[in-house]
Amino acid sequence: MDKRTTEREAVSEIRDGMTIGIGGWGSRRKPMSIVREILRSSVKDLTVVTYGGPDVGLLCNAGKIKRLIYGFVSLDSIPLEPHFRKARQTGSIDAAELDEGMLQWGLLAASHHLPFLPTRAGLGSDVLSINPDIRLVRSPYEDGEKLVAMPALELDIAFIHMNRGDARGNGQYLGPDPYFDEMFCRAAKQSFMTVEKILKTEDMASAGPLQSRIINRTMVDGVIEAPGGAHFTECPPDYGRDEVFQKSYAATAKDEEAWLRFKAEYLDLENEAEYQAKVRLR
């Protein structure tokens, strides 16, 4: 089956109020071409589950997020995400802030179709008081220990970005860390994968080791070839983070005029191809 599609088609699957998951980590290998397409759409009231980076900042700024489920939001080389901070400090989003490991546990529970997975992470901290919907469970064994029952984080749609993929939806990461991308896909009813380059399946073996082939085609409903699709986050070995661009993005949070200029220049565009052309022209 040929699953090749476009950002526009993929984003058109999102309905108002849906829960979407975004792969990557901080400002690393984020499906940014999808995020940019969401900004162009009219979709709203999203619940977003992610190890947050500029994806969260941009979606917050555009008023797309109703509820955010996250462990942190960071630009890595810039520790705090300024647009996300602004959203939090003006109370414009509902924040379900978790321990980073709890987020993994919720994705894993959803990908196994379990109602929850137990963990000690969260006990004694305010994670439980700020997330009153998270309950405890008692071990059924002799120890009888009360543990956090981290509920499954079921997603309507997941979006991930990989270095390579084939037209059928097999995906390959070539960087140092897989993050949690396959868990996002399995936790979702529907998943879309952007890739730097679509290869013939038989050519993927020479692109990287067997262990890099973490996404199989049962996890993916649509594949989009998106060279530079993770920009301005990093996507090694294809490219590093565009620190200059990220810095100018972050600076716009403090200055409304600068933000409007940034938005006009890089976001109020017809499509991803225009964005990539603008970025190349800098």
Binding site: G71, L80, G124
Partner: peptide
């Protein structure tokens, strides 16, 4: 926490680390 004066790093791994 519902609407902080200053949003900082978030919980990150602190709850799981410390326990």
């Amino acid at each position: 926490h519902a609407q902080p004066k200053a949003q900082l790093l978030g919980m990150r791994g602190a709850p799981g680390n410390t326990i």
